[in-house]
Nucleic acid binder design. Sequence first.
DNA 1: TGATCTTACGTTTAGCGTAACAATA
DNA 2: TATTGTTACGCTAAACGTAAGATCA
Lengths: 280, 280
Amino acid sequence: MLNLEELEQLVAFKELGTLSKVAEQFLISTPSLSRSMYHLEEDFGVPLFDRSVNRISLNETGERAVQVARRILITSQEGIKEVRDYDQSLKTITVTSVAPAPLWTLLPELTIRYPNMQIQHKVCSTSEVLEAIENKTTDLAVLPFAYEGDSTDCLPYLKESLDIVVPLDHTLAKESTVSFTDIDGYNFLLMNQIGFWNDLVLEKMPASKFLVQSSRFEFDELANNSTLPRFATNLSKDREKLQGKRMLIPLSDPEALITYHLVSLNPDIRLKDLADKKYE
Amino acid sequence: MLNLEELEQLVAFKELGTLSKVAEQFLISTPSLSRSMYHLEEDFGVPLFDRSVNRISLNETGERAVQVARRILITSQEGIKEVRDYDQSLKTITVTSVAPAPLWTLLPELTIRYPNMQIQHKVCSTSEVLEAIENKTTDLAVLPFAYEGDSTDCLPYLKESLDIVVPLDHTLAKESTVSFTDIDGYNFLLMNQIGFWNDLVLEKMPASKFLVQSSRFEFDELANNSTLPRFATNLSKDREKLQGKRMLIPLSDPEALITYHLVSLNPDIRLKDLADKKYE
DNA sequence: TGATCTTACGTTTAGCGTAACAATA
DNA sequence: TATTGTTACGCTAAACGTAAGATCA
């Protein structure tokens, strides 16, 4: 039966050319390696080397055996990785959400309810979340609408409504509500990595330009020290930081009020334990 | 590093269910197997089993590890076979011919010239021989025409011309030559496994029916004890067996006289040593 | 009570390194 | 003469089997 370590030595011999160098690399003696090479010939059942008294080299069959050895070693290494990854996946709950807000309550809840599990989360676009559901590459998904899978577990979780934040002397500041049509054309400050909302405002406000920020710190600095309007929601953490210098105006469009739905792809995670009770 | 024998034991455990049965099959003790299973968990680096005090079973990761183990073992077994086959191919000269006649001289010549090599031969249709050349699955090929490969070694080898053999009182017996058109419609006795000639007569004599024989003995019996016409060539071994009871009539069509060409796909086999000197 | 798995323990053996040797460049 | 591969030999560590123990059906 083949021995994977000897196969590695065979591949190393192909690359280094002499047993001495292989011995150096593997930190073993040359006699040991010499024996390994004989052993390989026994295992394959055919001669793999041309030998003169102090010279050993691969024959044609040996060259082929090196290719075969590489293939077996790769299969083995990938196999180990596959098993380890699978083991890890059993210990990890993966959450994929269209927006960050639902994660603020969901992740702590998961941490408490599954204390032995690692929680992994990701915010991305609606289409990417749907893809993750179809491919079952996530345990838990958060969508801005109900998922119409056959037997897929799906429950409403949270409502979020979009507002705009403008300086008190802004043209729009006198309005009590605005629509996307009203604000289309104004340039907005926009935080990156907010998944779903990104796509929505880009679609609804084609005439606007967005100053997209990836860093929260820089976003906050710009938000407080410029007259550029930005977005907020009923769940925004910085809702109270307006300090009377900014005005909050809700968006009247129905698309600006969405209900997040949880989708569970993992039978071990029951949504009834997680979903807000007011939806029961 | 993984051990292939332990992987086999893992697969066997999946199939047999208990270590005792695996131990029986592998002719080793159960403690040894118990240790192997612990060792596998070390190699993969993750738990593979659920253990109670006198019960061991695969967990989810273990089931996945069994699939991985099967894959590695198959890769390994196929690899060994590949190397052995390759080694064998280096010791074998494969000859693929469109007809048997060229082999009668070619095979003995090869046996003498390459005494350490096994000679393997096969007679098949022209298209199959061409395929073998393209795929390089043969060392030596015999075609009924010259092969127009770029740098491919190709030399003429032998001429063969087709005759028909009829009883003395046959309608055609008075002719000194015949064409395929003349004999189309007559039913013929035909030996199987003559490759190229089969295809030719079937193409040239669409109105004829052929009584195909696979056994040389039965063919000879029918040939001598029926009035059915058959084919022969200038190289036929049974040419002298006519005993005055049958008549040989050559075919006049140019297609009935062909020149066999040797094609070598193996640089170690030089055609100059094999091809008939009269073509030089 | 029989079947199953694990632990403990003594033994065997397979594999390793050192030393020595032969041959090459 | 330095480098390389193989053989010989003694030793170590890994692997094995037997025996014994614990648990479950």
